[in-house]
Design a protein around this nucleic acid. Sequence first.
DNA 1: CCAAAAGTGTTGGCGTTACACCCATGG
DNA 2: CCATGGGTGTAACGCCAACACTTTTGG
Lengths: 215, 215
Amino acid sequence: MARVPVFVDLTVFTIREGELRVLVEKRARDPFRGLWCLPHAPLDPGEALEAAARRILAGLRCAGAYLEQLYTFGDPGRDPRGPSIAVAYLAVVPARRIPEGTTFQPAQRPPRLAFDHARILEQAVSRLRTKSEYSTVPLRFLAEPFTLSEVQAVYEVLLDRPLDKRNFRRKMLALGALDQTEGERRGGAHRPARLFRLAPKHPYLLKERGILFPF
Amino acid sequence: MARVPVFVDLTVFTIREGELRVLVEKRARDPFRGLWCLPHAPLDPGEALEAAARRILAGLRCAGAYLEQLYTFGDPGRDPRGPSIAVAYLAVVPARRIPEGTTFQPAQRPPRLAFDHARILEQAVSRLRTKSEYSTVPLRFLAEPFTLSEVQAVYEVLLDRPLDKRNFRRKMLALGALDQTEGERRGGAHRPARLFRLAPKHPYLLKERGILFPF
DNA sequence: CCAAAAGTGTTGGCGTTACACCCATGG
DNA sequence: CCATGGGTGTAACGCCAACACTTTTGG
């Protein structure tokens, strides 16, 4: 029976300083000692894949983040120690929930990464950008409650283009994915902003027919 | 180090008798002896995942079929013999290329399946239908050369609704995914049909903005 | 000459984009 | 009272869905 080591690898994204960023760690051991890599861990026997991903997230103090399976990488050369499998997950964490001491690097121009992690990251970024066109995943970059301007800023980073404010608000509200909450946010010398949360039963995919963006 | 058995499982689809069908095998051994299951095999150490999928396809005499990775299943209870991982692939084979002696069952109302194969199949069908809205995957159900009416029939089965002939043809040709070939097909007491092939550099995803279907 | 599938254009309606100003607040 | 970001409506345009008849062949 074929038994190769099985790893769960994570791409944890956030948006900081107007840029998409990914969580990386510095390797303490060979191979690739001193190089950056994505957080990962071997699957415990008897542990479900998603459970392993959540275990790693908890270790990063990012429990509760949005999580979805990305892709499975099994190129025999991906680890110099020998054949292995990496089940990669994509996670999203709001910038305001990032714990101290965590390192996030620009996802589009990352530092050199160990193993096949550059390829994993590339695929994760691609998936994230594609899904921004037709899913509510981008809302996971925000801690509740949030303002419509914050939502627009997230979409602008992910889609990498400016969006029209009036059209954006009209469409976003029409989705039914947001619930307005009590209260407002005062953020300086200007009119206070209304606050929103993710609707309890928000759709994951946007609409059956047609795409919502571009505006 | 965590070493659990790694399998590659296949969902091989075709369209026959106006219905989406999936290739199944009868199990010759326990567990689940005599029950239907999806084709699968353990990953050889040192073998790439996709290479294993193609090896299984070749064993089914379906070499050359369209193939993409679907999802990885690792629920500890998926195999009664103990924890294991299944990397599932989705394949599409033209009805005219099906070898003798292969069993295809209706994909939407399959027989009882061993292991967690019912869940794998469910997810594969869902993915296939979703992708039919915005990708050229449905064209893989046809052996070249094919007629536009055949293409429309495939889309109608996958989307499960009738499509307008004139609108369908206009949009499909506008994609640039098809090349007209020499010759025509005479199929009885009616005007001969023009023949097409997949364009060498056909797009995988349809258009950047908007979706092509519905009509 | 009949049956059967292939092939072909136009129009009205709807949804989308483009666009500029007033509001509420803090300092 | 000034600066700052929050909030709002409409009109022109372009794209899409709806729709029916002619063509070519085999028997």
